[in-house]
């Protein structure tokens, strides 16, 4: 459990980091919180030649609302997302999800951008980004581009980010006052990656739900927008019949992985239960408001 040899450079600026990424390509890795990267090095599961440490680029940390959207810097620690007033005010879905991310010690080091860059299928932040229609800002020596969350997550640890690109920040539209959101997940122990989970949002008007967005994670290879289930719920009163229709539709949206955490049928079952609970939660939050 000792990492193989690697070189280490502390990035002086984003440009410096991008230059190094351009030079070393897939041989280099950005080092953010290190909570996922360092274990893979120690287990010799990955052996990059160069680590580019961005921890001193403090301007990449923090969440602000610029009047249009919330910008979450890549280096924002999970712990700071949890404490952020901006997040609490404009992104209640993220605020509800973040306590599910790992444990205190890991949240103190682990970063928002690290989680997005890694794209673990059970990670909470990617699911929230997709549910909220966020965009990701990527920079390289070739320039800067924005990628919508829907186009960013490609598969198991696969994203739209090119090897020479660095993730800079996420741009997330604020949740509107007439919508409600809910975040539900199941994990074997608190802080473990989820075995199933849903990030849900909708507008609720006199019992009718619209603008429904349901994103599933944990069971799928990547955060997954459940379009058929969303259509089945859209414009409907949230009742047993709608729940049934959504539950049925979910089977065509999801393709759960078969692994140690459960069989595909079990995971589909869990996602159905969580969907029911999330939409119950959304409608009861609407009632309470």
């Amino acid at each position: 459990m000792k990492a193989p040899k690697f070189s280490y450079v502390r990035a002086e600026s984003v440009e410096h980091a991008c230059k190094l990424l351009a030079e070393h390509g897939d041989e280099a890795r950005i080092l953010a919180g290190g909570q996922s990267l360092i274990p893979t090095l120690n287990m010799r599961l990955s052996r990059p030649a160069l680590l580019i440490d961005i921890n001193r680029l403090e301007h990449l940390a923090g969440a602000i609302f610029n009047g249009k959207e919330v910008r979450v810097g890549t280096l924002t620690r999970h712990a700071d997302v949890m404490l952020s007033h901006m997040v609490a005010k404009y992104l209640p879905l993220v605020a509800e999800a973040i306590p599910h991310v790992a444990h205190v010690a890991v949240r103190n080091r682990g970063t928002f951008g690290g989680s997005v860059a890694l794209a673990d299928p059970a990670a909470e932040m990617p699911a929230c980004l997709l549910a909220l229609g966020g965009r990701l800002v990527l920079q390289s020596v070739r320039g800067t581009r924005e990628v919508a969350a829907e186009d960013y997550f490609h598969g198991l640890y696969q994203t739209a980010r090119a090897p020479d690109e660095m993730l800079i920040e996420a741009l997330i539209p604020p949740q509107t006052s007439d919508e409600r959101s809910s975040f539900k997940e199941l994990s074997r122990r608190h802080g473990d990656f989820a075995v199933a989970g849903v990030a849900a949002r909708a507008r609720v008007k006199s019992g009718t739900i619209s603008n429904v967005r349901l994103v599933y994670f944990g069971s799928e290879v990547k955060p997954t927008l459940a379009k058929t289930a969303m259509a089945a719920a859209e414009g409907k009163i949230w009742n047993d019949a709608t729940a049934e229709a959504v539950s049925t539709a979910l089977a065509s949206d999801l393709d759960p992985m078969d692994n140690l955490l459960g069989k595909p049928a079990t995971k589909l079952h869990w996602q159905r239960v969580l969907t029911q609970r999330a939409l119950d939660d959304i409608t009861s939050k609407a009632k309470a408001a």
Binding site: P39, M43, R188, R189, H190, G191, D192, L260
Partner: peptide, 28 residues
Amino acid sequence: LYEHCVYDENGQLINGTMADYLTPMSTE
């Protein structure tokens, strides 16, 4: 509730890390 050294049919121990082998934790 949790602990299990899982072997596949070829005799590979497939969950031999603290990420995959679940020990009881104080929260539960």
